[in-house]
């Protein structure tokens, strides 16, 4: 059932390929905006790169959060999910992971290419991708809570960002910090392990909280 949810969502995402690409292009555009805004001065860009890439990843994954439940909410499959014998948090976990596969992974894969724009060294790029791969699932999981809470509300998109951004801050701090620590030579293992800890924490609690939120929204 869990795999069914993921497969189904991936199929749905593949059909509307445009949504996947829009999130990706949003990420690319936002990252390339910064040098234009800040100026081409190279070592400042290098210092800023991890923060810029991470903030852009945060915004990109948050933009597509609303889509996670909204289409199912409209055509009623969400009610069926609520009624199914399967534990709801498992289904929500499946949806969150599908969302991650559709938005998080492409971001992480394309980030090194963007990193070159900021003249990041090779191992910094590797750490960047590793931190993104570790961090983006957390974004999707915590985002699932926000998406579930603001289901069907007017102005839901903005509201989700208001609810969820404060909760993303630790992920942002350690994600960007990992790259910076590795470039300074401190080694990023501490930051990455903390990101891993956050991932496990949110893997356990986020689906359950999102399931509670879904039941509230659909009552």
């Amino acid at each position: 059932m869990f795999l069914w949810v993921i497969r189904r969502d991936l199929l749905l995402a593949m059909r509307q390929r445009a949504d996947v690409l829009t999130t990706l292009f949003f990420f690319v555009i936002v990252v390339s905006l910064f040098p234009l805004g800040v100026g081409p001065e190279i070592n400042m860009l290098r210092a800023m790169a991890p923060g810029v890439v991470w903030v852009a990843a945060l915004l990109a994954s948050m933009l597509s959060l609303e889509r996670m439940f909204f289409s199912d909410y409209l055509d009623g499959t969400l009610e069926q999910m609520l009624l199914s014998p399967e534990p709801l948090s498992l289904l929500v976990l499946g949806k969150a992971l599908a969302h991650w596969l559709v938005t998080g992974v492409p971001l992480a894969l394309i980030a090194p290419i963007l990193g070159v724009q900021f003249d990041l060294s090779i191992d910094a790029l590797l750490v960047l991708t590793a931190s993104l791969l570790l961090g983006t699932p957390i974004l999707s999981l915590i985002g699932a809570i926000g998406a579930a809470l603001t289901l069907g509300l007017r102005g839901g998109g903005v509201l989700v960002s208001l609810l969820v951004l404060p909760l993303y801050i630790p992920v942002l701090i350690f994600g960007a910090g990992a790259v910076e620590a590795s470039s300074v030579g401190l080694g990023a293992s501490a930051h990455l392990s903390l990101l891993g800890a956050f991932l496990l924490l949110s893997l356990v609690f986020a689906p359950w909280a999102a399931a509670v939120a879904l039941r509230i929204s659909l009552e």
Binding site: I145, A213, I216
Partner: peptide, 25 residues
Amino acid sequence: GFMALQAAIDDPRRADKAGAVIALV
């Protein structure tokens, strides 16, 4: 965030519960 969520939901029961979830998170 808590106040905005509660303001955006019209039905008081759902607003209370949704607010509770975001407050606990």
